[in-house]
Computed example of a mutant assay.
Amino acid sequence: MDILLVGEYSRLHNSLKEGLIENGHRVRLAGFADGFKDYPVDLKFNKPWDCGFLRKIKVLVHKITGFNVSSYLIYRQFYKNRALFSGHDVVQLINENSFYCGYHYERKILEYIFRNNKKVFLLSCGSDYTNVRYCFQNPGFKSVVQPYLAGKIKKKDFLPVLKFRKAGYRKLHDYLYEHISGVIASDLDYHVPLAGHPKYLGMIPNPVNLEKLRTEDDGHSDKIVIFLGINQENYFRKGIDFFEKALAVIQHKYAKQVEIIVTRNLPYNQYISAYNRAHIILDQTYSLDQGYNALEAMAKGKVVFTGAEKLFETHYGLTEKVAVNALPDTDYIVKQLAFLIEHPEEIKAIGKRAEAFIKTQHDHAGIARKYVSIWE
């Protein structure tokens, strides 16, 4: 098959691309590199007028005229490279707003893609109309909407999520769902809101390229190493405030037994190297299932504090922990960390099960075959 993957979050499409190529398919990846993470793409789009003085001008122009300069300039990038976006058996969009344009220019791009390719599929692996609506309608559902409703995140900082509640993005959602061949969820956080939708084709777990993730020897430290990698933009959405408070307690109580590593806004390659020595990774508190960073750490045999709710255990038929289910509760996190520090044999046991789980459920070549089966 000839396949075009559009957009990149957390290396999902890169790993899928590698799995598809191993299965003999021709694959290209186009889109943004996910900010400072700087993931590789075959055709890289840039967000113009997105910072500094030019951003202020853009906002002013939009307020006065309603014209979105960034959307127009992104559309020009697309139009210049439009040949890449035609003639494929399958195009997969990573999001309902893969090109970060407003309704007018995003639709113009999508119209071209629908017109010039055989099938177009949509991934639900981040905020989109269906997911955001469900989370606001069900405030008890574990999601990034919870810290916003708790008043921790300012409205302007939550716009990448809130935009999907606006009329233009509802129109874009409706247009997409009229034309796509189907939508696929990457984990349970996106499966639950889509369950029962006529266009929903089911959940396919995130692909992880195990060949790029070697288990590290943890024998070089006499202490238990705990790692927290902070993406400042997602500070409250990931529940980092709870992790930082818990680490302060752990540092005070177990200073001689632990080493704590904290990093901020590292590019992907530096981030993945920074936690190699760690035994425990603190990932996020507002999820049912594991996101991509958690899965890669688990593949390396780390104990990850992340989403691992009962629904996750039931779905995969698990009877023993492969990760620690994290909650937005400092005392709970402290208790879980303390147990592991006082029972280091559990760290090794969970780490081994985590690595085996990723090999069984997330191997990129096997996951790629699942995608092809659904696409066909």
Rank of each mutant, 00 (worst) to 15 (best):
K118M: 07
F312L: 07
D363L: 03
L337V: 09
G219E: 07
N95M: 08
K154P: 00
I57C: 06
N68H: 12
E244A: 05
L20P: 11
E8K: 06
M203N: 08
H362P: 01
F67Y: 07
K238Q: 11
K37T: 05
K321T: 00
K238A: 06
G202E: 06
L176N: 02
V225N: 13
D174S: 01
R214G: 04
P205E: 13
G24W: 14
F141A: 03
T285R: 05
K256T: 05
I280R: 06
S15E: 15
K37E: 09
E111W: 12
A150T: 03
F141I: 06
P328K: 13
A365K: 10
A326L: 09
F99T: 04
V69D: 05
Q257V: 03
Y79W: 11
K163M: 11
K245V: 04
F141R: 10
I333P: 07
K44Y: 09
Y75R: 14
I260K: 08
V225A: 06
E355G: 00
N23T: 09
G140N: 11
R115K: 14
A274H: 07
K223V: 09
K212L: 14
D128A: 10
N234A: 06
T330H: 11
K155T: 01
K163T: 02
G24N: 12
G66P: 04
I109R: 07
P193H: 10
N325Q: 10
H279A: 10
F227Y: 15
P344K: 09
K199Y: 12
F305S: 02
G66A: 02
N265I: 14
L172H: 11
Q257E: 13
D2C: 00
L337G: 07
E18V: 12
L4I: 00
H13M: 15
N325W: 12
I358Q: 03
P328S: 10
G219L: 12
D218L: 15
Y268H: 13
V61T: 14
H88K: 10
D42R: 08
Y148S: 00
A150R: 13
F99S: 02
K212T: 07
Q137C: 09
E355F: 05
F136I: 11
T130Q: 15
F312R: 07
V132C: 06
S273W: 13
I184S: 03
H13E: 15
W375H: 07
F85W: 07
F67H: 03
Y72M: 09
S273D: 06
L60P: 01
F357I: 01
H343L: 05
Q361W: 14
S10A: 11
D189P: 00
L282V: 02
Y72L: 08
A299F: 03
R353D: 00
K108A: 06
N209M: 07
D331M: 11
E313L: 04
F36T: 00
D89E: 05
I272N: 08
K156E: 07
I350M: 00
L318E: 04
